[in-house]
Design a binder for these strands. Structure first.
Lengths: 132, 132
DNA sequence: CGGCATCCGCAATGATACTG
DNA sequence: CAGTATCATTGCGGATGCCG
C-alpha cells in the first residue's frame, strides 16, 4: 500500500481527465446496449431488425444511437444497400473485433465469477447494491 | 454472416437477459466512477479521501455508492478501523484484482487505439457521436 | 473523517408516431 | 425496413446539511 509519495495528478494516460476522448469510446463500448451490440456482432453481420430481435428490450432509438456512436468510433461498419425496402448490414471492423474480444473477455470473466460473487453476497448479507 | 438458422434465444450465458445478474456487475465495474476506482485501487490501498483526491471530480455520494456496489460484488474490500477520527481503507480483493486487470486491459487498448479511431473519424467526417 | 439523507436539474432512455 | 422526430419518464449525479 502507500502509493507514490508525491501529489502527482495520478495515473497513466488521462483516463481520469474529464473530457478524455478515450473515456468517450470506453463509455460507448461499455454502455448498456454497446456491450450487447458488440457481443452480438461478433457472431457475424446483422441487419438492424435482427439486432433488435437478438438483443431484445432495446428501443429503436437507442439501438440506432448506439450503432451510430460505434460507427463513428470505427468499431462498427454500416453498409446500406440502395434497394427498396432498405437493407442495411452492420458488422464489426477489424478494430471492432479487437475491442469486442476484450469486452466479451470481461463479460465472460464476470459471468464465470458470478457464483463466487453471489456466494460472497450471501456470506456478508449484502444486497446486490444500487448504482447503475 | 448469416448467423444461426434457428431462432434460438441467442448467445452463450444470458448476457442478453434483461435481469441478468452479471449485467449488474458489468455495469458496476464499467460505470463512470467504477473504472476509475478499479484503476486507482490497482496501485494499492486507499482511504476514502485519498480516492476522492486521486480520482478528482467524483462527488462524495457517487464515490460512496460506487465503493458500496463494488464491495457488495466482492470486488472491493472495505476495512474500517475503529478509531476516532474514523479510518477506513479500501483495496481490491483477489477477485477484484482480476476484474481490474481486464478493465484496465480494455481501457489501455482503447487509449492505444485512439490515434486510429480519430483518424478514421477525420476520414469519414464523423463526429465523436452522441450516446453517453 | 467517512459517511447517510434529502432535494433537484438534467441527461439518458423509452414509447409513440411519422417518413424515405 | 430503417430509421428520424417528438414527447414523457427515469434515474444519474451533484450540492447541501447532518451524524457518529
Amino acid at each position: 500500500m502507500t502509493m507514490s509519495t508525491s501529489d502527482e495528478p495520478l495515473l497513466r494516460g488521462d483516463l481520469f481527465a474529464e473530457a478524455c476522448p478515450s473515456r468517450e469510446v470506453l463509455r460507448h463500448v461499455t454502455s448498456r446496449w454497446g456491450v450487447l451490440v458488440l457481443v452480438a456482432l461478433r457472431r457475424g453481420t446483422h441487419r438492424f431488425s435482427d439486432l433488435r430481435r437478438v438483443i431484445g428490450g432495446v428501443s429503436e432509438k437507442m439501438l440506432a444511437q448506439t450503432l451510430q456512436a460505434l460507427e463513428a468510433d470505427a468499431i462498427v461498419l454500416r453498409v446500406a444497400h440502395p434497394v427498396v425496402p432498405p437493407h442495411v448490414e452492420y458488422s464489426l471492423t477489424p478494430l471492432g473485433r479487437e475491442v469486442a474480444e476484450r469486452v466479451q473477455d470481461l463479460a465472460d470473466w464476470i459471468e464465470g465469477s458470478m457464483p463466487v460473487i453471489e456466494q460472497a453476497r450471501r456470506k456478508s448479507g449484502a444486497q446486490p447494491a444500487r448504482l447503475g
